[in-house]
Design a protein around this nucleic acid. Structure first.
Length: 503
DNA sequence: TTCCGACAGTGGGGTCGCAAT
DNA sequence: ATTGCGACCCCACTATCGGAA
């Protein structure tokens, strides 16, 4: 199959907003894939490369050769070219990479170049990713969608599920279950503003389980015999970087197992260190130890527990893992007890809680209402210092705002971060108008404005920053509302912000 | 008919290793 | 030694479609 067919399909997918029509277009292309092209076609239709890392990014693709006049590249040729680039990424020089990029992109038409660049940077933006490709696979291979979904979640790979669906149908899909040593997609939590709302959302007839939410790195640990595997939320293998976690799991009783948990660094006082320290430690193989805390058990001694209710999994976990390596948990249906548990957890320096329906199975890869997270929110009234032009559906709109706190010493403002979150279409239209009025300069990317507009910002907290002049940056900033009842002179000061420091 | 779950998009800050400067 | 880039960690929120209620 020619790459051009994928690119044309992607354009057709992007051109319609109907998901059903997108799936039909994807299915059409899928039908034309030859047996030995299947993996590449499935992957490319979903807008992802088959290589995890290529060493290429937007910068490495900013200077491309003259495009080809006609389409000659096959999908297999493209895949092989990226295989070669992935090898260079491990060992090689910039010059070798450049030559390989020039060779590949020089054979692509202008349209193909643009699409390939999106493929590398993860910005194909056709309104369809894995989920719709799975639907197309189910249609073309004539197998139930739920079977494809489940196989993809349990193998951690839509590609593996697609191959199974086409080569062995439903039977092959059902064989693609949980296998110790092969990561599965982790179950995720939705969120609620407070504990009461979370308890209502995590629908259950009886009591609910409430877990402490630790601010570290999500870990999934597999043990088969002496072999231990540790992976992150995105299924990246970090076994070599966390030998202390391997040691803990190796010493647990029982046989084969799969655990879900969180790893983080603790201070000498036993309290959690800031996330940045855990992240630093987890990114390399040396440094002070992280401590694993587990909250779920997905497999034990040949028995899959995924479909067992939470109560059964918790009981098995409690029997297997000592309390020192378990996340703190309360089971209750009493809102007062729950609120007390939340207060204790926060006082212990933790991030929040996760409310869980104890009847629910482990829904790999899903973000349902069986798990609901609650974290405290702080709000600040800050001043907009500049705005950036948006991209994609925000093209032509002023989108990402630069935020500053008042500095009474100088009469100026100290930048603390940016945000593009929380804006409705109406707000985007309004702020485009408003900041155009306040504009003092525009370089085509950043529009600087007179510091007059106050905005209420919600954040999870502060983090250390070497980028911003105040030495702190906002964590997960989002817009709550614009405040026209306050002037910039009434905005929060840097001292008001620094009062939120927890270190 | 209305409601709501799932999806995709739009980007945020920080950390590391590595290569080029 | 510093800087820029790619890859990864943490992530919130809105708009939309289409099936569920």
């Amino acid at each position: 199959m020619l790459l051009a067919e994928i690119v044309a399909t992607s354009a057709a997918v992007a051109a319609t907003r109907s998901r059903k029509a997108k799936v039909l277009a994807l299915a059409d292309a899928l039908r034309h894939a030859g047996p030995d092209e299947l993996e590449t076609v499935v992957s490319y239709l979903g807008g992802t490369l088959r290589q995890r890392r290529t060493g290429l990014g937007w910068r490495g693709l900013s200077d491309l050769p003259e495009p080809a006049a006609g389409s000659t590249l096959s999908v297999t040729e493209v895949h092989e070219a990226f295989d070669a680039l992935a090898l260079i990424a491990g060992t090689g020089s910039q010059a070798t990479r450049k030559a390989a990029v020039t060779a590949l992109f020089g054979r692509a038409t202008a349209t193909e170049q643009t699409w390939l660049r999106g493929l590398v940077t993860g910005e194909v933006r056709q309104g369809a990713l894995d989920a719709l490709v799975q639907e197309a696979v189910a249609q073309v291979a004539d197998v139930p969608l739920v079977a494809v979904r489940r196989a993809a979640m349990l193998s951690g790979s839509t590609l593996a599920a697609a191959v199974a669906a086409f080569r062995g149908g439903e039977a092959a899909l059902s064989e693609l279950g949980l296998e110790v040593g092969r990561p599965i997609l982790p179950m995720l939590a939705s969120s609620a503003p407070d504990i009461e709302a979370a308890m209502t959302k995590a629908v259950s007839s009886g009591p609910l389980a409430i877990d402490a939410k630790l601010d570290g790195i999500r870990i999934q640990v597999h043990r088969r015999g002496e072999d231990v595997l540790v992976v992150t939320r995105s299924l990246d293998d970090i076994t070599a970087r966390l030998p202390e976690v391997v040691e803990v799991v190796r010493n647990l009783p029982g046989g084969d197992l799969v655990l879900d948990g969180e790893a983080l660094m603790l201070g000498p006082d036993g309290r959690p260190r800031p996330f940045q320290e855990t992240a630093s430690r987890t990114a390399q193989a040396s440094g002070a130890a992280v401590v694993p805390y587990f909250f779920d058990l997905l497999h034990l001694d040949g028995t899959d527990l995924l479909d067992a209710p939470g109560t059964a999994r918790m009981a098995a976990l409690d029997a297997l893992v000592p309390e020192t390596h378990r996340v703190r948990r309360l089971v209750t249906d009493d809102p007062e007890q729950a609120a007390e548990f939340v207060a204790e957890t926060l006082a212990g320096g933790h991030e929040g809680v996760i409310v869980k329906d104890p009847a629910a199975p482990y829904d790999a890869g899903r973000r349902g209402s069986a798990w609901v997270k609650v974290k405290p929110v702080h709000t600040l009234d800050l001043v907009v210092l500049a705005v950036e032009w948006g991209s994609g559906r925000r093209t032509g709109l002023l989108s990402n705002i630069h935020l500053g706190a008042r500095d009474p010493e100088t009469g100026g403002f100290v930048m603390l971060g940016k945000t593009f979150k929380g804006m409705t279409d109406e707000m985007l239209a309004w702020q485009t108008e408003r900041f155009s009025e306040l504009r003092t300069s525009d370089d085509g990317w950043v529009v600087h404005v007179r510091p007059e507009q106050v905005v209420e910002i919600a954040i999870d907290g502060l983090q250390r920053s070497s980028r911003y002049p105040g030495g702190v940056a906002l964590r997960f900033a989002r817009v709550v509302r614009y405040r026209d009842d306050k002037t910039a002179a009434e905005a929060d000061t840097l001292d008001d912000v620094l009062a939120l420091k927890t270190w």
